[in-house]
Simulated assay, not measured.
Amino acid sequence: MVRAMAGGREEDRRAALALLAWQLAAGVDEVVGNLPVNRLESAASIRGRPPATPRPMPSSATARSAPAPAAAAAQQGPSEAVMAARARAREAETLEQLRDILAGFDGCALRLTARNLCFADGNPQARIMFVGEAPGQEEDIQGAPFVGPAGKLLDRMLAAIGLDRTSVYITNVVYWRPPGNRTPTPQETQICRPFVERQIELADPDVLVLLGNASASVLLDRKEGILRLRGKWFDFDTGRRTIPAMPTLHPAYLLRQPGQKRLAWRDFLAIRKALDG
């Protein structure tokens, strides 16, 4: 009997591990609630509970005057959200104002699932600006771009050409972490695009580096993949002036494909030459 009980516990342990593996594969990486919920609880025990006290409903006037952020974001269609983003981005006269506007902008649903806005890191007065794709888990926790494993590799790449966080300005084309670190949708990038373009215009760097396919395709309106675009110079028009822009490989990609670092090294040497020239 004892052996049978031990065998049952082992089966339960294996089932729990299999469930955790499935959740990780599905992109679950955070605990939503503090207490477990017994989904296998019998219906009889549920029926035996006293009825829950209903929550008071807000008055219609209150609901109209203060809509929930989730409801406000859901009411906007893609085109309306993009138009709202363009209007709000134009209001910013400084990078600080742009960040404050983004913090209150409810047109992108990603802000509802993210912990923090990841606006920028580094020196806003730097001559060179890097634009990546989207925050990851560590970036979402700290509220800054490129602070996780990919950011540590980026720091080493910068050091190889004599740069560091005090001499560069860094952001992403999407300011909030997508759930499970999934790729941002075209709608999400288009909603954030006016803010990124305004951020580049206000920072006014001499050189723009686009890290990965997402930032290159969005900001350059190119359909080619990053392996075709990397290492080439393009013109990025801010409305005030034209900035030379180079797409290159994203550090996260280089962590998965370390053999491609030689290509990124060539790009970074060309970037260093452009800064020196």
Results as ranks from 00 to 15, higher is better:
V2W: 12
R9F: 13
R13V: 15
R14F: 07
A18F: 06
A18L: 14
L19S: 11
A21M: 09
W22V: 09
W22E: 14
Q23S: 11
L24A: 10
L24F: 12
V28M: 12
V28A: 12
E30R: 15
V32D: 01
V32F: 03
G33E: 06
L35Y: 09
P36D: 09
V37R: 14
N38Y: 11
A43R: 07
A43N: 04
I46Y: 12
G48S: 14
R49W: 11
P50R: 15
R55L: 11
S59M: 05
T62M: 12
A63G: 13
A66K: 09
P67T: 06
P69D: 08
A70I: 03
A71N: 02
A72S: 10
A74L: 12
R86D: 04
A92N: 01
A92P: 03
L95K: 02
L98Y: 00
L102G: 06
A103Q: 13
L110Y: 05
L110D: 05
T113D: 13
R115T: 03
C118E: 03
N123K: 04
Q125E: 12
A126E: 10
F130H: 10
F130Q: 08
G132T: 04
G136M: 06
I141G: 02
P145D: 02
P145L: 05
F146R: 09
F146L: 14
G148W: 09
A150K: 11
M157G: 01
V173F: 06
V174P: 03
V174F: 03
N181C: 08
T183L: 14
T183W: 12
T185G: 07
Q190K: 04
E197R: 06
L202I: 00
D204L: 00
L210S: 14
L211F: 11
A216D: 08
L219F: 01
D221E: 02
E224W: 00
G225Q: 02
L227S: 02
L229C: 05
G231M: 09
F236A: 11
D237F: 07
R240P: 00
P247V: 01
P247M: 03
L249S: 06
L254E: 06
P258G: 01
R262T: 06
R262L: 03
R266S: 03
L269A: 03
